[in-house]
Design a protein around this nucleic acid. Structure first.
Lengths: 249, 249
DNA sequence: CAGGGTCTGTACGCTGGCACACCGATATAA
DNA sequence: TTATATCGGTGTGCCAGCGTACAGACCCTG
């Protein structure tokens, strides 16, 4: 059976840092509460803070002309919002909005850049995370192209559950339509199908995951694929050491 | 009227480096000729070399179960193939294959990592390029979702022309179908429509761009958007200096 | 110059998602 | 309690792209 509610989860990216680096970083952070649907970055606008989600998650959304929009990435406690800064760019290419309310650590740009310069460990962690994020972008692109709404919805629910660390969360069909880049009606159809199969239940925006395994079966392979990339890259740290050996040989 | 054939174009990423850094890099490079449809990286496999395309271009392709595949990125002389290495990962998340035959500079992994460590300028350039690449991934994801095949094809042709630096190049409908993630028949329809409009002409894989402006009008806004991102980020170097000021203030 | 491979064009039925529209149920606040 | 807004369900007609199949045009090689 799935987890019910794990409180006090820490941000895993920070957790992977050596004690000293982490403490220095935390000293610059403030704890904030992210609220559902808050817009954190707008595309093309200046980034003022980076965020390390704890029990919250943030969507990266691309908007096109008209009302078309599509979620291209999802950031939870495995990562950080504000990647452009580490690439020397101070504007966000995406719309970033809160998808699951909850706590996050926040840090201003100057402090972040300062600490990034000092901490090789943070650089390494962020680099690996960026690799994972890029993989996620590509996977999402292909998934969006080839898989039907029901499977994509199932995947989305699983990914969100992983990041919200809870069996229940709040999200309406309209919001889902926005994320998946389909009509609200399309979400309604897919969602009621999943509900009929007793994989989820929902009522006016309160979604409960009833059967995680069943949901995984209903989802496309993309969910598994992404999880495996994550575990492979961020789980073991072999890559870097190997590469460092290469440099000095 | 568009360019006909600019030979001897250099890789722009390398061109942007200070003389000394560039020379050191070039000393480690060998000139190779990339052939159409050559597979350079397979997903999950070890990266052995990085590539700086000159008059050639390389597609980044995501494959899903079955025969589904989709181009998610395109690298020409504005960039480099082998980004994962700078993130501390030695395997490619994508299939990388040659899309326009032509010359490229190639460098082995160890040399690249060594030079990357030594050259702050290279780091900066690659960081900015990575930002552009990420934007491209996201734009492509949304474009693929919302735009019709004909517009996407037009965009693809424009992007390829930019990178091949020539009005004509070789590409069959089958190959295009693979890149755009649609059936071959879909490409045939879209292509013959573009041909009827006298925007392109083709015969057994030899495509000629007849009317660039018309093609831009037939394409989706994504082409322009991407170009603007590129110019904005890689054209002016304001971003970094600004950020560096911030760090030391 | 015959034969086999490659490239392109066309046809047909199918379906997932679209646009638009409307309605009932539920929550919240006056 | 009633007004109002939000949320979810249904229905109809439409279309882009799908799967599949076949055929003509072109090219190279034996």
């Amino acid at each position: 059976m799935p987890f019910k509610q794990q409180v006090n989860t820490i941000n895993r990216l920070l957790a992977a840092l050596p004690g000293k680096d982490r403490e220095r970083l935390l000293a610059h952070c403030e704890l904030v509460e992210l609220m559902f649907a808050d817009v954190i970055y707008k595309p093309g606008e200046l980034i003022l803070h980076v965020y390390f989600p704890i029990n919250s998650s943030i969507s990266l959304v691309t908007r096109l002309e008209g009302s078309a929009s599509l979620e291209v990435g999802l950031i939870g406690n495995e990562g950080m919002l504000g990647i452009p800064l580490m690439l020397g760019v101070e504007v966000s290419p995406f719309l970033a909005l809160v998808q699951s309310s909850g706590p996050a650590l926040r840090m201003n740009v100057a402090s972040f850049l300062q600490e990034l310069e000092r901490s090789a460990a943070l650089q390494r962690e962020l680099n690996l995370y960026l690799y994972v994020l890029i993989s996620q972008l590509a996977q999402t692109a292909a998934c969006t192209r080839f898989h039907v709404v029901e499977a994509r919805l199932a995947r989305w629910l699983l990914m969100t559950q992983d990041r919200a660390h809870s069996d229940t969360f709040h999200v309406t069909h309209v919001f889902l339509a926005y994320m998946l880049g389909v009509r609200r009606v399309g979400v309604t159809k897919a969602a009621s199908s999943l509900q009929k199969q007793k994989l989820i239940s929902y009522h006016r925006g309160d979604v409960t995951i009833l059967d995680r395994d069943g949901l995984e079966a209903a989802s496309c392979r993309c969910y598994r694929a992404e999880k495996e990339t994550y575990d492979h890259i961020l789980g073991y740290k072999r890559n870097i050491h190997h590469l460092e050996d290469l440099v000095h040989s």
